[in-house]
Amino acid sequence: MGKQKRILITGAAGFLGSHLCDRFILGDYHVIGMDNLITGELRNIEHLFKLENFEFYHHDVSKFIFVPGELDYILHFASPASPIDYLKIPIQTLKVGSLGTHNLLGLARAKNARILIASTSEVYGDPSVNPQPEEYWGNVNPVGPRGVYDEAKRFQEAITMAYHTFHGVETRIVRIFNTYGPRMRLNDGRVLLAFIGQALREEPLTIFGDGSQTRSFCYVDDLIEGIYRLLHSSYVQPMNIGNPDEITIRQFGEEILKLTGSDQELICLPLPTDDPKQRRPDITKAKAILGWEPQVSRNEGLKITLEYFKSLSKMEIEHKDFYYYNK
């Protein structure tokens, strides 16, 4: 029997980080979770605290990072990811994408560990091509309200490739498209969550613009499997992982109303600055290189997600935050 692999997962108490912890625990890894809890929630990983092959560090990766012992892999998922968060804490968002990434790349170099960096479809900005292939350089406003997140991720990719080419660090970059599922925060400002929260509270669903913007929603289990395969592949260039099943925001709102049995109406509000008009991943590379494509239909995934939110306390469901993007 071989030596147990050790993996550091930053942003471990967040939505994706906590699911990644679960996946690698199931894979018999020794998982070290790290999170400063600025947006993460300990309840997402509290079921892991009793396990011998899990440990947790309450730490901000923008500061010096020390992890004793060997490391085989690092997954960098520490970053605010919703508009509500990165508009409230723009400096921290920029720091975790720059200083935090720099610190973790240095740690990977020192430990001779392979590191996977979580980038995002937001590097494409408001795209002029659809679907978005990895070769598309994007259409991003660096000084707009979304710039603190978009440019942090673009810098993150640049410094990661620099460490790969200059220092020979084993790196992987995943560009994550809209993902949903249990453990998301109902009030974190994303359109899917806003719709579900409003439907559960029996309120009208609010749409920014005329609702013709498109998004592509990937269920979390599919995304985690894609990330797992990318980490263990030999591919070093950025790779899209997401569901190419595109839908307009208006159509999506209608789906939520039907699924929840709500008879509320859809209300249109002014479109926020730099809101992307289209979002759909080209997953040609993921199919060819990883043998990966989404398996969970939107209808199936939404039913699971809705049941999770129905299980929350009434206080959590009643908590409102009307300022969100069609993300």
Rank of each mutant, 00 (worst) to 15 (best):
K3G: 05
R6V: 03
A13Q: 08
G14R: 08
F15H: 07
H19M: 12
D22M: 10
F24T: 04
V31I: 10
I32R: 04
G40E: 12
L42D: 14
L42M: 14
L48I: 08
L48D: 11
F54A: 06
Y57P: 03
Y57R: 15
H58G: 06
D72N: 12
H76G: 12
P80C: 09
I84Q: 15
Y86E: 13
V96K: 10
S98M: 09
N103Q: 11
G106C: 13
G106V: 00
A108E: 03
I115A: 01
A118N: 06
S119W: 09
S119T: 03
G125P: 04
N130I: 09
P133D: 03
E135T: 13
E135P: 03
W137H: 01
N139M: 02
V140G: 02
N141V: 00
D150C: 04
D150P: 00
D150T: 02
A152E: 00
Y163C: 10
Y163W: 08
G168C: 14
E170G: 09
R175A: 04
Y180C: 07
R183I: 06
L186W: 02
V191Q: 07
V191N: 02
S212Y: 03
S212E: 13
S216G: 14
D221P: 05
G226Y: 09
L231P: 04
V236L: 07
N240V: 05
I241G: 08
Q251D: 12
E254Q: 11
L257D: 11
L259P: 00
E265R: 14
I283G: 09
A286D: 08
L290M: 13
R298W: 11
G301Q: 06
Y308H: 11
F309K: 10
F309E: 00
F309R: 13
I317T: 01
D321W: 02
K327P: 01
